[in-house]
Simulated assay, not measured.
Amino acid sequence: MTPPPSRAASDGDATPERGRKPRAGEAVLDRAFKLLRCFDSDHRVQPLASLAQRTGMPRSSALRLVRQLTEAGALERLEDGNYVVGLRLLELASLAPRGHGLRSVAMPYMEDLFHVTRQHVLLAVRDGDDALLVERLSAHDATEVRFRVGGRMPLTATGVGLVLLAYAPTDVQEELLRDFAPHEDVGLVRLRSADELRRALAEVRRGGYAVAQHPGAEGLATAAAPVHDEHGVVAALSVVVPSNQFTPHAYVTAVRTGARAISRQLGGQRQGELNQRPAPTK
């Protein structure tokens, strides 16, 4: 007797592969996040086949997870069968204190800084070895930049990144110093060696701010300063402007004033003053 044909995937893809199992020890939650991490600024809309290929999962496994994530609201299925990130994730992300919670406190002061500079104002937090942008205000006629809310930037390639790294735990700093590699095409900061990075971090701790001006990077410059709460540095605030408009003293003063105002709202003024004492170089 001929066995009945297997049910085709409702997403319009070929019959799911059989006989393949997920890698041993890989939890369902890990695989679900692996699927979600497939979405980024260059891959906002994806078909099931792409998700399966990018994760290395059998299509049948990817389909099961995609269906579960769609039912939970983490993904949404479009009329053409492609998938996008669901609004449920936005709803949950709005509860993150280091994201939207920080943003709600910082926004009035970011708006003040924006009205003064009429360019780009960035607010970022450290997430592992990256600076994660949680808010950006930009004028319509501001010089184009590649930074986006929710985007990641190397800690060694931007003003906010240097600030966050300068106040990061020692083991984080030493790991990046040990594995340092120049970022030629990312950000505004052009550091060529681990020694240059170590000196730059010491300068940030001594002065309480970071500046970078690199005409080769689309003619942009930046000034950044730390934001504190009662536990220490939790974020970095910066402005990004054309190099030909950049006067370091004026922009450093403006961004430090904004960062201190946010810190006061977060209850970190006293800790902020302590953390801005000069630190010895190595």
Rank of each mutant, 00 (worst) to 15 (best):
V163G: 01
A250V: 14
R20D: 05
T222Q: 02
V105Q: 02
A72T: 15
N244W: 01
K282D: 06
E175D: 11
A217N: 10
V204N: 02
R54H: 04
R67W: 14
L237C: 01
S238P: 09
T117S: 14
K34F: 00
V255I: 12
E203Y: 07
V227M: 11
A279E: 01
E174M: 10
V149R: 01
G101H: 05
V149T: 06
P226I: 04
A254G: 05
L191Q: 02
D179C: 07
R88Y: 11
H228P: 09
G86M: 00
S6N: 12
P5W: 10
T247E: 05
G73H: 12
G12N: 13
A210R: 02
L89W: 11
I262F: 06
G151Q: 05
R98T: 14
V160W: 15
A72I: 15
T2M: 14
E175V: 08
T170F: 08
A166W: 00
R37A: 07
E26I: 09
S60N: 07
N275I: 01
P280S: 15
E135G: 03
D30M: 06
A8Q: 12
E91T: 12
A93C: 01
R199C: 07
M107I: 04
L176E: 10
V239P: 00
E273F: 00
R198T: 00
H249S: 14
G25A: 15
L122M: 10
V204I: 03
V160I: 11
D185V: 04
G99A: 15
Q119G: 01
D229Y: 08
V134K: 00
Y251N: 13
R264H: 14
H120P: 03
P226C: 03
E174L: 14
R98M: 11
M110I: 03
G150R: 10
L65Q: 14
E79N: 11
E184H: 09
D11G: 14
S50I: 15
V255T: 12
H228N: 08
A224R: 06
R31T: 01
A124V: 04
L197Q: 08
L89S: 03
L90G: 06
Q46R: 12
Q68E: 14
D127Q: 01
G187F: 02
P154I: 07
G272T: 02
V204P: 01
P248S: 07
S238I: 11
G81C: 07
E175I: 11
L162I: 13
E174F: 10
S41H: 08
D185E: 13
D130K: 02
P58A: 03
A157W: 05
S138M: 06
S243Q: 04
L51K: 05
A202Q: 10
V234R: 01
A259R: 00
M110E: 06
D80S: 06
L201W: 10
